[in-house]
Design a protein around this nucleic acid. Structure first.
Lengths: 144, 144
DNA sequence: TGTCAATAGTTCGTGGGCGAACTAGTGTCT
DNA sequence: AGACACTAGTTCGCCCACGAACTATTGACA
């Protein structure tokens, strides 16, 4: 019997299990230096065709800038991205993926797909849609 | 339009917003030293009538024992619980809520209720039940 | 009984995330 | 030009969470 009361704890557990699956996938694929927390940054940079200011990353990923500073530092240290100064505004630093970073695209997409497949299991498309709508709803409720 | 693809990120955002709401509630009520991470420990201890071994807390809350050690240390430091040695097995430490800790029961229940109310909003009981079942399902899928 | 494994709990080092404070550079306005 | 606000990014200290290593105690068993 589904317990409507413990929904918050349950959402927390689902998130942790999803992260665990991603970590296992990364390990299986021998990808070093990447953890689930890097996902939003990578997803954003993978869809850029040109270097973008760090500020744009901050606005995209839903983390404060001090966190993004460190995340970008980690990705740079592992060779997945490169920083370049702006020559029009010297406060600004641009970032772009290196070839090694762009090489993550395929793994990223495959891991996302694997996660969705496992998460949804044999749930019908109609139920998936319904679930997604309900999650939209509760996210909106919490934002109000 | 609900996007079935970004469900993992969405679940993460929901969790963060729920935690933010809990923190705001705690602050409003002037409760010091308690953060959302303490919730599972408090929930477990609130339903105990006698001191329980730390090991029981560990098994209940889904955190590793080193994490629970620290959490219990924090709660103790703020006077919400007390540790007492076992006299039959000197490896074991029991914990129990102090009166101050038990005094959190009402706030705990009210905050839980507030969170659920806000999270579900005007969702019908039938939809709530359906959502809870679907979350059960995806949690199970991820555990398999 | 003496040895060795198992158990309960703590400590330590690492990493993600935050907010506050800081640096450096740019914009504004008189 | 000079003062001041604003902006981009970094640094620092803190908390949560983890795993690995450690301490202390108990259990098993030859």
């Amino acid at each position: 019997m589904a317990d409507v009361r413990k929904i918050a704890a349950q959402i927390g557990r689902i998130r942790e299990k999803a992260n665990a699956l991603i970590e296992a996938q990364l390990k299986d694929r021998g990808i070093q230096g990447i953890v689930p927390a890097h996902g939003p940054v990578l997803a954003f940079l993978l869809q850029q065709k040109e270097p973008v200011p760090i500020k744009a990353v901050v606005e995209s990923v839903g983390r404060v800038k001090s966190t993004v500073t460190v995340t970008i530092g980690t990705l740079e240290k592992h060779g997945y991205l490169r920083k370049l100064p702006s020559d029009t505004d010297r406060r600004v630093t641009y970032v772009e993926l290196t070839p090694k970073g762009r090489g993550l695209r395929k793994d990223f997409e495959e891991i996302s797909q694997t996660l969705r497949n496992k998460l949804y299991g044999d749930m019908s498309p109609r139920d998936r849609e319904r679930l997604a709508k309900q999650l939209d709803q509760i996210e909106g409720n919490l934002s109000a």
